[in-house]
């Protein structure tokens, strides 16, 4: 039916009148009109309409970039702080360890000193005891000499007791001692 209509219309108008006809000139006209419209809109209309939106977008973009920068900076600061914290912790630990070792040394030294003093005291006590012993022995020997001389003088008269006699007895005691 459509073809019949088309044929009828062509017959009536005498020339092909159809919406399906493609007119080359119209293509050129479309390009021309659209091109001019495109350029005019681009120059005179869009900037005015879009300026606020574009500014807003630019602001948002800038804010985003700034936020990102701030974030990066904060991250760097945090990392630095953590590094510092770690360092100070290590430092504190080393100080503690040093203090501990110093106190250990100190204590060891004190113990050593005490021991030495103790030893010294002990040695002195020993020496004194020995000296006292020696003195007592000497005393005892002198007592013995005096007693023997007294006994001998009782036996052989009053003559004994002179220094020469004393020497004889002492020599004898010494010889006895050297035999021991």
């Amino acid at each position: 039916m459509y073809l019949a209509l088309l044929a009828a219309s062509e017959g009536a108008a005498g020339a092909p009148v159809s919406p399906f006809e493609v007119n080359g000139g119209l293509i050129i006209w479309t390009w021309f009109v659209f091109g001019v419209l495109f350029l005019l809109l681009k120059k005179y209309a869009w900037p005015a309409i879009l300026s606020v939106t574009e500014q807003r977008e630019e602001t948002i973009r800038r804010h985003l970039a700034e936020a990102e920068q701030a974030h990066d900076k904060a991250q760097a600061l945090l990392a630095e702080q953590q590094k510092l914290l770690g360092e100070s912790r290590a430092q504190a630990q080393s100080i503690l360890a040093e203090a501990k070792s110093a106190s250990d040394r100190e204590r060891a030294a004190a113990v050593q000193k005490t021991r030495e003093e103790q030893d010294q005291l002990l040695a002195r006590a020993r020496r004194e005891i020995a000296a006292e012993g020696e003195k007592a022995r000497q005393e005892l020997r002198r007592e013995a000499v005096d007693l023997s001389l007294a006994a001998a003088s009782k036996l052989i008269g009053e003559r004994l007791g002179a220094d020469a006699d004393k020497k004889i007895v002492m020599d004898h005691l010494a010889s006895l001692e050297s035999l021991n």
């Binding site: 019949a4 209509l5 088309l6 009828a8 219309s9 108008a13 009148v17 159809s18 919406p19 006809e21």
Partner: peptide
């Protein structure tokens, strides 16, 4: 009608 329709839609 056909002629009228085409006439009004065609260039």
């Amino acid at each position: 009608i056909g002629e009228m329709v085409l006439h009004h839609t065609a260039d």
